[in-house]
Amino acid sequence: MSLPEINAGVRQRILKQGWIQFLDWQHEVDSTNQRAKEWLLDWAESASLPALFVADVQLAGRGRGGKVWFSPEGCLMFTLAIGRSLLPESPQHWSQLALVSAAAVAECVASWIPDGTRRVALKWPNDTFLAGRKCSGILVESGAGGARLIGIGINVHVDFSPAPAEVRQRATSMHEHTLSDEPRLNDRKLDPGQVLADLLGLLQFYIGDWSSGGDAWLSVWQRRCLLSGKMLEIRCGNGQRLLGSCLGIDAQGCLMLETQAGIACIASGEVLSWQ
């Protein structure tokens, strides 16, 4: 499925929504985050934000710590660049942006999937899971002038049959969970462009609410936290490993873990396993 063929209308819809001030849509890029970074450097303070960078195929998509993101066609890949004016006043809250963005992704995915309320979950800090397998990941980085780059990948209509076995076991695509071979919901055909247009509306709402002190994002997490009540092994940012029972997410977005030594609130770390 080629985005340019089907998405002339989607581009118009996105620009008509009025939130996105600049739209860059390429067939193939190394990484949309990298493209956005370079654009911000070129335009500096005169950059029109929020700006959107979309790619049909990403050759060097990255996850955390340089992990490669499998990025075939049918995967919606984009970077949303937002200016500092859309961040809360206190930098202490800025790291919540990944959770805020993930809340928007989860709500968007759920809106397209039958029984999405039950089947879509959020894995701290920013992955969306569908029926127990990952269907979206996010990487947030800084850009010139204090901008933030929210890189999002969502498996909308991805054929995983040529993917490595490890990816096939752990990943899923939205289209696998719809009701027919020609997935539709309320007479809308499932395609990455339509999902993108929906998602931008949700991102605008959740980021705007968060930026003005709201916690709509947190209530999504409380409803959809995949890890709550599970036993976790976590590698903290400083390399320390922790085992414990997950108590959910606190108001700051930290993962609360009940360990033998007491309750730990983890801001930086990777969940290695859960059961």
């Binding site: 930098p91 800025w94 790291s95 800090p125 990487l139 980085e141 930086s268």
Partner: peptide, 25 residues
């Protein structure tokens, strides 16, 4: 970095670094 958000921290001051007080990671 927290919650997979990589926050670049600007100096917000002009001068010369005379001491590094935190270790990597």
């Amino acid at each position: 970095e927290a919650m997979k958000v990589f926050n670049e921290i600007p100096a917000e001051v002009k001068g010369t670094v005379v001491e590094v007080l935190a270790g990597n990671e």
